[in-house]
Nucleic acid binder design. Structure first.
Lengths: 227, 227
DNA sequence: CCGTGTGAAATCGTTCACAGCC
DNA sequence: GGCTGTGAACGATTTCACACGG
């Protein structure tokens, strides 16, 4: 849960958001997107902030405010047009283009992630995977070629990989991260249970299973009225 | 990042403490714990809030405030004793006891999660896994027996499962969640990309890969100074 | 001195409430 | 009538700053 990103000065051309966006908004945007796609598939042409909010457990005001950070997408009295809002959110999130991705670590978790359909579905193209186990090198996993980790730099550069996913043991994660950064990736999604240190021109998001489980324990253990 | 729950905090018995803990504190506590274990293994007997904070990217004040919600653990002029603070955080998080866990869905992701060492390492005992694929039923994965999903209710009750992990396709997740709740679990960790609706005496934490990746995209796409 | 614990101040994020539009 | 867009009020969280203890 480690993100990055200020919003100080845009120097170029067009407009930049006046106010900086609260962190949390971006995650909610992803959820709005997902829910909008479901609603659209249900045949609805438009959706109100209150319906969308109800389905996700947010207030209508929050939905409107969140969207308001990025523009005006709705029509008073009517709601938001699903199709257009979906398109707009994809642009905001930056997933209107294709992202070139590499997976580092093809153990249990790496394999599972490579098999996750959501990646390709949303425009992420996994072009390479890396491992240090000789037996795996040269084979394919879910259609993705597995290379020797020693070739990481070369291949990341050749293939213009923009995002790196780290699914190696904690002890190797920082080294891998450094190599990815040196090879020019712009962002890293880290599944290893360590806090990575990166230069701040590289974005970092971490997914930490232990942390999530522990926070679940906490809320169970400290529940207001245990049954 | 979907969490649940407002009113925690207390240490013993019948107290309904008024001070609510900011959400976010619990996740940081997990990180403190992890880092403390590393620091302790390095041979340090104590650690200051500023050192701990620096290693994780938080301010010293934040570290002290977070810990302050739960008691006084440090010595002025000295810092926090690693061993004791570790023990204290484990108690706060509720991971000083053993939690009985069941995994639902033994596809790629479920298998990967079952293989994740962090679970057993921190006192989580996975006693059962469920799947609807006939070929898997009756076999073991990472030492965990796989049962027919039709037996979920019976086995969860028999084994007194407290936490359920959902790693099934999105379309099945709500049904499974309902069954888990009906069988008496106290918390659910959901990996399926849907927003679950649960009664509020059951805690919910969601881990959503698509959302995390999208938020990474956003911060790369909107970086202050793209290189 | 260094470093904790903690009110008080500052900052940030959410909810309210209402004007204006369909 | 229903619903968006948005400043203003409110609430939550973080940072500051300093008294006090080893």
């Amino acid at each position: 849960m480690n993100t990055e990103h200020p919003k100080p000065t845009a120097d170029t051309s067009t407009e930049m958001s006046k106010t900086s966006v609260p962190k949390g908004v971006v995650n909610r945007l992803s959820l709005y997107l997902r829910e909008l796609q479901i609603i659209e598939r249900l045949g609805e042409k438009t959706v109100s902030s209150s319906l969308l909010g109800d389905r996700l457990g947010f207030t209508d005001a929050q939905v409107r405010k969140d969207l308001g950070y990025f523009g005006q997408f709705g029509q008073p009295g009517v709601g938001y047009p699903c199709a257009e809002l979906i398109k707009a959110i994809r642009v905001i999130l930056g997933i209107d283009r294709e992202w070139t991705v590499a997976m580092v670590g093809v153990g249990n978790l790496g394999r599972a992630l490579l098999g996750y359909k959501g990646f390709s579905a949303q425009g992420f193209r996994v072009v390479a995977a890396f491992d240090n186990m000789a037996a795996k090198i040269g084979t394919y996993c879910e259609g993705v070629p597995i290379y020797d980790i020693a070739e990481l730099g070369k291949i990341v550069q050749e293939q213009q990989v923009v995002l790196g996913l780290i699914a190696v043991p904690a002890s190797d994660a920082q080294t891998i991260a450094d190599e990815l950064v040196a090879s020019g990736v712009a962002g890293i999604l880290n599944f290893a249970p360590v806090t990575l240190k990166l230069p701040d021109n590289v974005s970092l998001v971490g997914v930490d299973l232990a942390t999530e489980l522990e926070s679940l324990c906490f809320s169970v253990a400290n529940r207001p009225n245990p049954r």
